[in-house]
């Protein structure tokens, strides 16, 4: 019961924090975009089905769209990320596969695994988001620049947050 609460809390709390505070934060003229709701998507348990992940990511994205008046942009990017999460999870799975107790956290999977997975997924999300947001060819290169810098910044921020808030569990 407690584990289930923590599991949902990990997804819901970052989304609420993003809607309440982080969507107002503009760092370095938008070059360091911190989509805090993405932390919730990244912490969806590894054992969840691809369908569940896709629907949850789409739903979270739509919620952010409604709050930020972005009209489907975050939903679209969330769906891309929702499709990519199971693929990346599979590609990064240990030889013997994931155990039931494994979580997508630093404590459970290690820092390198967390950083590579987070950076890859954020890059996929941000490339899609900023390219569509740019809406024209003249802005595509600056959009990709924003995607790279924001992915790097968010990865470091998320790693730090997860490190500071993690429970002490036995790693792999």
């Amino acid at each position: 019961m407690n584990n289930r609460l923590i599991e949902y809390g990990r997804i819901i709390i970052p989304v609420l924090l993003h809607l309440a505070f982080f969507q107002y934060v503009i760092l370095a003229n938008g070059w360091w975009f911190l989509g805090f709701h993405l932390l919730g998507m990244l912490l969806i348990p590894l054992q969840r089905s691809p369908l569940f992940i896709l629907l949850l990511c789409g739903m979270v994205g739509a919620l952010v769209d409604l709050a930020a008046y972005e009209g489907g942009l975050f939903m679209s990017s969330g769906l891309i990320m929702g499709l990519a999460i199971p693929v990346i999870n599979r590609l990064m799975a240990p030889r013997e596969g994931y155990e039931n107790s494994d979580e997508p956290t630093i404590a459970s999977m290690g820092l390198a695994w967390f950083i590579i997975r987070t950076a890859t997924l954020l890059l996929i999300h941000h490339l899609w988001l900023f390219t569509w947001e740019a809406s024209r060819w003249g802005l595509v290169f600056s959009a990709w620049g924003k995607a790279f810098t924001s992915s790097l910044f968010s990865t470091l921020a998320f790693a730090l947050i997860v490190l500071l808030t993690q429970r002490q569990t036995k790693g792999r």
């Binding site: 369908l51 789409g58 009209g71 939903m75 769906l79 499709l83 569509w132």
Partner: peptide, 28 residues
């Protein structure tokens, strides 16, 4: 089913984005 659902939802999301006509409108 996952890919098909993704295509349907993605189509909806992008239509929503493209047809918002420059700025958001409507009841929501």
């Amino acid at each position: 089913h996952v890919i098909l659902l993704f295509c349907v939802l993605q189509f909806f999301a992008l239509s929503w984005y493209v047809t918002r006509n420059g700025y958001p409108r409507g009841k929501w």
